[in-house]
Amino acid sequence: MVSVSASDLSVTLGRRTVVRGVSATLKAGALVGILGPNGAGKSSLVRALLGLLPHGGAVSIDGVPRASLSRGEIARRVAYLPQGQLLHWPVSVERLVALGRLPHLGPFSRIGAADRAAIDRAMARAEVGALADRVATELSGGERARVLLARALAVEAPVLVADEPLASLDPAHQIEGMELLRAEADAGGLVVAVLHDLTLAARFCDRVLVMADGALVADGPPAAVLTPALLAEVYGITATVTGGERPLLVPLDRVPLTGRSPPA
């Protein structure tokens, strides 16, 4: 059972502290949503988890301090889908998805049958098989997002960290994307996704971490965490929240600035 835990994680960029003392243990078989307004430190938090940013505090993967793992060892355990990813060369979709196998290749070895199979599985799951021969830089926003997700899936790591995987997807593909992440978690993986869509997060996530101004302000099942009071405090919005286990959450309006309590 894979687990990722952070204790007292903090990140300072320049003079600004963007993540303050976040502690959490994330366990396999769960889809964990990281929520919070723009600039709350969500991306910095996941980048720090992966060791892509210098940070204070400690991160461990499966109980092993991440600092003692090499980049290659981390890469085989945690697949990462960065936010708003730019593609720098006009390579084919298949070639791009194949990059996900890099952590598994020994020195001087080529992509083998097992890697081929993993690439095909990832492309089938993200439904990008039909795009295999297209040029990755010439895809539509939605196609590109799915291809990049396929690239992350091709790593077949026990942990998948996706930073805004639903950005620029239409509603059908957003739901499809969430179903895909859900299926990863149900198959025993740990999926951590930075999300902006509260409705989808409430429906699909097992657990949500809510951040505001760098601090973790709430952590738990969506039904318990995503209350009108918390949404007003963190996002400054009013919302209807109905239903039980998998609540239906609809953002309605902004709370007037004067009536808003400052974020914790």
């Binding site: 992966l50 980049r71 085989r76 990462y80 960065p82 593609l87 720098h88 390579v91 990059l99």
Partner: peptide, 20 residues
């Protein structure tokens, strides 16, 4: 070569694929 390929995904993407 491999590190350069991984950099197609940017620096974070490459580092997350195990590139030092």
């Amino acid at each position: 070569g491999r590190a350069l390929d991984a950099l197609t995904l940017g620096e974070d993407g490459a580092a997350a694929l195990g590139v030092d």
